[in-house]
Design a protein around this nucleic acid. Structure first.
Lengths: 411, 411
DNA sequence: CCTCGCCGTTTGAACGTTCAAGGCCAGGCG
DNA sequence: CGCCTGGCCTTGAACGTTCAAACGGCGAGG
């Protein structure tokens, strides 16, 4: 294996070391170190002198030296999966972005890796720990009987999970979205928009995520006095299957009805089914997806947004703070919010209901799109399938990229 | 900023250091080091003895110590972008996977990061280099007037780019797909399937990627004696816009025609336009996309697959081998291959043409799905919107997840 | 017989930082 | 006056590896 080329010498910052800064400032190594790591221990005049030299010399602490001495890599591992084709409405890309932002704030690096050996899902975890390349892990896609959480726990390795650790949900450090509340929000949103009956398209019973979301629909309908009988459909995470499964529901709902779906992929299936019938999503039948994946935006589907930025910062918080002494903390549940798009806009004035606080007066489709991060202009766009020069690609007019408050429209 | 928690002591491997292994094997430090880094220098009996102790003690070289002494982090930076909603048919997720696989083989880690400051796109690059956390970078989404390649070059920082370095394509280390050849392959595929006239839906002139792909269509049609007049459409990277832009093309093509698109997103636009007209993609009008993104698989769209695995390994090869002494090498162009799905299957026996080598006898849709990596069973699936328990989610019957040779069906 | 060169191995030092301990000085208190 | 305390700073050592140079032994060549 050829050695990785080294960067050319001298051009990049960090030519100076602690010792050189110390000499320039007329203090010892350790004082410079303290200025960076424990400034309160250094007298202000000294501190200022050192800081001046640090910036003058362009000093940057060496990651490797620091990791060696501190016995801490300041890095977290994140497994990226082999995309198996079902990764359509997936959030991994935006979530990864939020993780890097949160990691930066915690002075931690994110190291991505993939499973080297299919039969031994923890092998690569062990490898990264063995060579001390990471201090812990960020988990996603936790499943029932997932071997990773128990393996990590038994080896006393810190981790935080996006998604409940299903086998022991009461223990461990996880963050997840409240699917039940999320769907409840979606149902109330649709009712507020004037849809008369609300159905649900989800996955077969038995999956904790799916059952949770379905329950949100059922209980909210019960609270609002809406019928649920015959308005529930079940399908797999596939656009075509979802379209087929939605047919009987659409027959029963008729115009003025709406469907909440367990995912954006399913909602897209409903969308295609509606188009095949010559019906307009929104105007004729309401559709609400779940996740607010890029898919939802592309098809103008109202969706329940996962608060990815908060999820990411919470996960890093779990890893950077000392764990509670005894009685380990349980996981954290965050609430999704509705992202309104045209698929939940009935034409004509919707009846004013108490559930929606002062809504946006934009006529056809109001889109509170991602409010959190810096402007998208410097973003890394889709790469190959994108005209390089048309930087100012005019967005579809119906989706003005306007900011909006990240309000969770709850109940 | 709270310190990152350290993993619990003693449970994870790598309890042993070089010195301990050396003592156990009765040799010196350096000999153990040589066994790992220059085995040919060590006498076979000694080598075996050392290797035995290494495995017996579970020794793993410490990444930080190695990086400090070697003055090389053995890590590469990869920027992940702020998803701006247009990242629909994007390849970043599968590409990232392939990168991690290739990086593992090169004993390099991939560190992901995002732009901290919108106005200074190279700031985070400088930071990572300054603290010596990476040795170089993997670039994607290179644009015209991209400040990164020139900045990196001027600082003598190694990098490899997925996508041409447009400002100086003759210089530098990039890997890209040959859009022109790719589209040519797509056109020939459609002709072989029996479609009589072939149109093209692309982006406005001026983008190098788009112009390249359009030229592939135009030149191939010329070679095959097909008309192109009036069969070319132009639109932005948006499903709805693409659907609208395809309308006049579909009018002119009629049944038995086909469209090659500059991206899967555009192909999806055509797909929706066809459905709105009550036409069947494939049976009535052929559609071929570009990229073979998850989108294409989900909608059963034939697409031109980017050879992501080869792209990734090539990029790492560019970074791990010593650069050529003088007259720097130019970039590397790789050829896409057709992934056949139902959107290019005419009903009825297609005329047997010489261009398609022995094709798959599967009736409705043959999908040589990702052949490269380990089976998808251990993959990290879509996370939130996926029933956790239905691990064996039955794939749509028309897309059996069967392996197939990665044959590039060229010409 | 001595020297040279080579092979396999060892030794000293260094990479750049932080831990742990210690030193110095001023001020407060007995 | 002497002792103790606390604030500020320095010193020695260590983290675990690899570089660079030196070492001893052995066979070949002069």
């Amino acid at each position: 294996m050829a050695a990785l080329r080294r960067p050319g010498a001298g051009h990049v910052p960090s030519r100076a070391t602690l010792v050189q800064v110390a000499a320039a400032a007329g203090v010892s190594r350790q004082t410079v170190s303290n200025v960076l790591n424990a400034p309160e221990r250094v007298a202000p005049p000294t501190r200022d002198r050192v800081l001046l030299e640090i910036s003058r010399l362009g000093f940057r602490p060496n990651t490797a030296a620091r990791a060696l001495r501190r016995r801490r890599a300041a890095a977290l591992g994140l497994q990226v999966g082999c995309p198996d084709g079902t990764s359509l409405g997936t959030l991994t890309e935006p979530f990864l972005y939020e993780l890097t932002v949160a990691a930066r704030a915690s002075d931690v690096h994110v190291v991505t890796f993939s499973a080297a050996d299919v039969d031994d899902p923890t092998a690569e975890y062990e490898h990264l720990l063995g060579v001390r390349a990471v201090d812990g892990f960020l988990l996603t896609d936790t499943r029932h009987d997932d071997p990773r959480p128990s393996w990590l726990r038994s080896h006393a390795v810190p981790f935080a999970s996006f998604g409940r650790v299903w086998d022991e949900p009461e223990v461990g450090e996880w963050v997840d979205v409240d699917g039940r509340t999320g769907v409840a929000v979606g149902v109330r949103h649709l009712v507020a928009q004037g849809y008369e009956s609300i159905g649900f398209l989800g996955w077969p019973a038995g999956s904790p995520v799916g059952d949770d979301r379905r329950e949100g629909w059922r209980s909210t309908c019960a609270e609002l006095g809406l019928v649920t009988d015959g308005l529930e459909g079940t399908t797999t995470q596939d656009v075509h299957e979802a379209a087929a499964a939605s047919a009987p529901l659409l027959d029963r709902l008729g115009g003025g009805g709406a469907l909440v779906c367990a995912s954006d992929t399913l909602a897209l299936g409903v969308w295609t089914a509606l188009r095949d019938r010559g019906l307009r999503p929104g105007a004729d039948v309401g559709v609400v997806g779940f996740d607010d994946s890029p898919l939802a935006a592309a098809f103008d589907l109202t969706s329940l947004r996962q608060p990815l930025a908060r999820i990411a910062t919470t996960m890093l918080g779990l890893l950077t703070r000392e764990p509670p002494a005894a009685g380990r903390r349980t996981g954290v549940l965050l609430e999704p919010s509705v992202v309104e798009r045209s698929s939940s806009q009935r034409i004509g004035p919707p009846p004013v209901l108490p559930s929606t606080p002062g809504s946006d007066p934009t006529p056809s489709a109001a889109t509170p799109s991602r409010p959190s991060r810096p402007a998208p202009s410097a973003a890394t766009p889709s790469r190959p399938s994108r005209p390089a020069s048309s930087a100012a690609t005019p967005s579809r007019p119906s989706r003005p990229a306007m900011p909006a408050a990240d309000t969770t429209r709850l109940t």
